[in-house]
Design a protein around this nucleic acid. Structure first.
Length: 974
DNA sequence: CTGAGATCTCTTTTT
DNA sequence: GAGATCTCAG
């Protein structure tokens, strides 16, 4: 069997991947950059382990970090493995796997098998209450973060005084959870570690452990991984430190070291050679960008909105690009509102991933809380939340005092209420007669009834989860309640509830879709079989806080709107990142700029062919300040903002088609299809001059902003469902355009012709249609690939290497021509540009060019004499969008540069869309027009991924007992 | 004390 | 643009 399977298995793998998949080393570390086929490699390895090595699927454990990744992994393994065998694999997020072990074996460590999961809002609520009660000055969110860190990491280093208050809070919190029989997310991991330490037999069957996105592991997860694998110590990890974006969740890149240290003889494999496809993407994208650049000279239009771009892209590609090829990635989920409403108005179908939490909706939470109480009446928090929903005449004050009373008496709220209604309570808190009746009759009775029914159901009385929920809704008069509370808005709320019921039904139909299957039986180890569907359902809700909507919408192509975090591991032909402004990315509340930078990097590398970054000019709410472009792209944008949005001209689309390996329909077919709409050019936005005419010259940012706001409301009420393309884009007078544009609060627009494009790996040798996807030799190294090692070096030798490597970049100002973007080491990137490579040392020292090329912003820093002083910088910013295009096309002729300077100058007053172009380097201009002082260097703190790329490559310093390719450890695969 | 209406405040990312 | 919090009438 092996032979046949292997053939097909390896046919889709390149050499490095093959090596990774079929490695016989007990521990394998696969280090790879974006787009190098990590997931594919990992899934293939699972297949190999099962089909070739011969492990039972149930003896293989695969852990991921996000639900989506788990789902995808399962699907892909399922496809590759066949026969539904993937269901036997212990696969899921760390949390979900931990939960399964705890549910099955947790009793051994004194866990009540009916434990519930305290989700984020539960924890927050509990901690907030504790903080209030303790009357400490500590900030609940801070306390929460501290506690979580402490659990996830084991230690927290901070001032002892701080720790003390936090510690008290921590202990109270823990007690509270225990009383309510809850585990929070961190507890799932911590307790599972405890379990597996004390009872290794629970995982004695596990032959091999595989970890996806290893760079996201935190301390506990690392322990857990080791414990999962304790029987055989066979582990495969896959990761890319540059995509480490979960530092806030205590992910520690350091775990890579630990891994290499703890597992001597780890085989390390870089998936460099597989960068082929991406590399050709780079190459081709280059040309795409060029096409766009050539358009810049036409003075027709500028700016644009992604929703329009989407339509245009679709039209101009004759349907080659469809909605589902497009993703809009956001730093924060809240931003999706704007995007969603804009998409909605344009009639573009979309789906939202991440951030948007169905189960967090109030109406759903109420139902869930009832279910949780039915499952476990002692859940005080849940009970307290719904005790007065629907209104029963109990107010906050009473609830609070009841809760305190319960706490004092070491009992639960539920028990207290039951007692009270039976009349054996020495009332400390008075409850009114009327209220008492309601509680007794409507709440306690209702819940008790359902509990009894549910208990009977367990004995096979044919009462399932859906019926339970429906009964609950009926008994509660929930629809009426919603109507009373939400008025005309109630319909959507009620439909959410109905959707929830449908989800429950789906869950019942096929629990394995949403939730894992039972853990494998282990001879001689006794298990508690999870029989309670309700428990599983609730756990699933807590651990997979998003619904799966895919099933119904699969026929229609949908644009994806997603948080960047949730987009990790995915890719799309066309990607928009519409909020690249300071405060969003890096986020205002983030204290780790390097991580924010990686985040942007992750976002950008999701793009296969087309990448657009944009920056709105104003915040959406009451901010008087114009938004500033994210410092991460400052240097890029300074040179690469385009006046206009992208043009999806035929040559461009042809290249896109090549990248995607799709066929672009013939020209006539395309134009036939777009008879009545879609401007070919993106000229939504007025010229600077026109902007002035519309009365938009500087009157101060704040009044502008206000004006904007008015426009916004105005617009919303006035624009019907008419074809937005026509209305706004084309025939409408500018005033309308402005209104329309301002209605979209993420308007500014920075196109980036693919991140890759921003930094060409090579000079385009002969820009010709020959640039096919597979043409490039595999020697091109994916930049990020090395970085894992780069990182490793970093820890040892950081200061030195870094400062040397980054020295030139850190220099804030340089004179034109003196420095140059970091191009390909072997070949100066832009033939026409003068200047020397930034990193001479490396240039001679031989890091691969690609490593440095990959750098996003800083690789491109070049500068020229400042043309304007800071005092010339504009104060006011009219409402026009900015478009930026990251490109890497060759230097423009001098003339062009002059032109550009002029354009930028014009923007000084009127702030039209500004246009940057990487090749028309001009950071100072950007400086000028934005009125921002540029930081001394991009990489002021931490080592951003792209910066790390600049470090010379060194092999890992960790000693290993054998060399690659030499003696391999023998599998004891008896 | 409750409940309705008004006002303030925020807003990361995921399990 | 929703949630938490505050204010005041009953």
């Amino acid at each position: 069997m092996a032979a046949v399977n292997n053939a097909s298995l390896f046919s889709t793998l390149n050499k490095a991947q093959t090596q990774a998949v079929s490695s016989n080393a007990p521990t394998v570390a696969i280090l790879a950059g974006p787009g190098s086929g990590k997931t594919h490699t990992l899934t293939s390895r699972v297949v190999w382990l099962v089909d070739h090595v011969g492990y039972q699927p149930c003896d293989v454990l695969v852990a991921t970090f996000t639900v989506k990744a788990a789902r995808e992994m399962k699907e892909r393994i399922g496809k590759a493995l066949g026969g539904g065998r993937e269901k036997k694999i212990v696969l899921g997020t760390f949390h979900s796997i931990a939960r399964r072990y705890l549910a099955t074996y947790g009793q051994r460590i004194g866990l009540d098998p009916k434990f519930g999961i305290a989700d984020d809002s539960d924890s927050r609520g509990i901690i907030t209450r504790i903080c209030k009660r303790l009357d400490t000055k500590i900030d609940p969110p801070a306390a929460k973060a501290w506690i979580s860190k402490k659990k996830a990491r084991g230690t927290v280093d901070d001032a002892p005084t701080k720790s003390k208050a936090f510690m008290t809070c921590f202990m109270e919190y823990q007690q509270h959870l225990e009383r309510a029989n809850l585990l929070d997310y961190d507890d799932l991991l911590v307790r599972c570690v405890e379990l597996l330490r004390r009872y290794p037999s629970c995982v004695s069957n596990i032959q091999s452990v595989l970890i996806d996105e290893y760079q996201d592991t935190n301390g506990v997860q690392y322990e857990l991984m080791k414990l999962f694998a304790q029987e055989r110590r066979r582990i495969t990890i896959v990761g890319d430190p540059d995509q480490s974006i979960y530092g806030w969740r205590s992910a520690e890149i350091r775990n890579l070291f630990r891994f290499l240290r703890d597992f001597n003889g780890t085989e390390e494999i870089s998936l460099e050679e597989n960068y082929r496809s991406s590399s050709s993407i780079l190459d081709v994208s280059l040309r795409v960008i060029q096409q766009q650049r050539s358009l810049r000279k036409e003075p027709t239009g500028r700016g644009g909105l992604d929703r329009l771009q989407i339509k245009r892209a679709k039209a101009m590609s004759g349907g080659m690009i469809k909605e589902d090829d497009v993703a809009i990635l956001l730093r924060s989920a809240i931003l999706s509102r704007h995007v969603e409403s804009a998409l909605g108005k344009s009639g573009i179908p979309y789906k939202m991933i991440g951030g948007f939490k169905f189960y967090e909706r109030t109406e759903i939470k109420v139902v869930l809380d009832y279910l949780r109480i039915i499952h476990q009446p002692d859940n005080n928090d849940a009970l307290a939340r719904i005790i007065n929903v629907p209104k029963r005449g109990i107010g906050d004050a009473t609830v609070k005092s009841l809760l305190e009373e319960a706490e004092r008496g070491s009992t639960s709220l539920w028990k207290l209420l039951v007692k009270h209604c039976r009349g054996d309570r020495n009332a400390k808190t008075t409850i009114r007669k009327q209220t008492e009746q309601k509680i007794s009759g409507e709440l306690l009775k209702l819940i008790n009834n359902l509990r009894i029914k549910w208990a009977d159901a367990a004995k096979g009385k044919g009462f399932d989860l859906v019926e339970l929920i429906e009964q609950l809704l009926k008994d509660l008069g929930f629809e009426k309640h919603l109507e009373d509370t939400y008025g005309d808005e109630y319909e959507s709320r009620w439909s959410n509830v109905q959707e929830f019921v449908a989800l429950a039904a789906e869950f019942m139909k096929d629990p394995s879709l949403t939730e894992e299957d039972a853990l494998p039986d282990i001879a001689s180890v006794e298990q508690v079989r999870e029989t309670d569907v309700l428990a599983k359902f609730l756990a699933n809700v807590s651990l997979a806080s998003d619904k799966q909507t895919d099933s119904e919408n699969q026929d229609k192509p949908l644009v994806t709107v997603s948080t960047i975090h949730a987009a990790k591991g995915l890719e799309w032909p066309m990607v928009f990142i519409p909020a690249v402004y300071k405060g969003s990315i890096p986020h205002i509340r983030s204290d780790d700029d390097a991580e924010e930078r990686r985040l942007l990097y992750v976002a950008m590398t999701r793009a296969q062919a087309l990448l657009y970054l944009s920056c709105p000019l104003y915040g959406s709410h009451s901010s008087n300040d114009a938004l500033q472009l994210s410092p991460f792209v400052e240097d890029l944008s300074a040179t690469q903002f385009l006046k206009r949005g992208p043009s999806f001209e035929r040559p461009t689309m042809q290249e896109v088609g090549r990248i995607l390996r799709r066929e672009l329909p013939p020209e006539d077919a395309i134009y036939k299809g777009m008879a009545y709409m879609t401007p070919i050019e993106d000229n939504l936005f007025p010229d600077p001059t026109e902007a002035k005419e519309t009365g938009r010259s500087s009157t101060g940012a704040s009044s502008e902003a206000r004006q904007l706001k008015r426009h916004k409301t105005h617009h919303i009420s006035n624009t019907g469902q008419s074809n937005p393309e026509v209305v706004e884009g084309w025939n409408a007078p500018y005033s309308t355009t402005m209104q329309k544009s301002s209605s979209f609060t993420l308007p500014g627009f920075t196109t980036a012709g693919a991140h890759h494009v921003a930094n060409p790996q090579e000079p385009r040798p002969k820009p010709g249609p020959a640039a096919g996807p597979s043409r490039r030799p595999v020697s091109n190294r994916p930049p990020a690939q090395r970085t894992l090692r780069g990182f490793v070096i970093t820890d040892h030798d950081q200061s030195k290497t870094t400062s040397e490597a980054l020295g030139p970049i850190l220099q804030p100002r340089r004179v034109l021509g003196q420095s140059q973007s970091v191009g390909n080491r072997r070949n100066p990137i832009y033939p026409t540009q003068q200047g020397t490579p930034l990193l001479k040392k490396e240039a001679s020292g031989g890091i691969e060019s690609a490593l440095t090329d990959h750098k996003l912003g800083s690789a491109k820093i070049t500068s020229r004499p400042t043309k304007m002083t800071p005092s010339e910088q504009p104060q006011a910013v009219p409402a026009v969008k900015q478009y930026a295009c990251f490109s890497s096309s060759p230097t423009k002729p001098e003339k062009d540069e002059e032109e550009e300077a002029t354009v930028v100058l014009a923007e000084e007053q009127t702030r039209p869309a500004s246009c940057f172009h990487s090749t028309t380097v001009g950071a100072p201009q950007a400086l000028g027009f934005r009125g921002v002082k540029r930081p001394a260097g991009l990489s002021h703190e931490g080592i951003a991924p792209m910066d790390r790329l600049k470090k010379p490559f060194k092999p890992l310093t960790i000693k290993r007992p054998w060399r690659k390719g030499a003696v391999q450890p023998v599998y004891d695969n008896s």
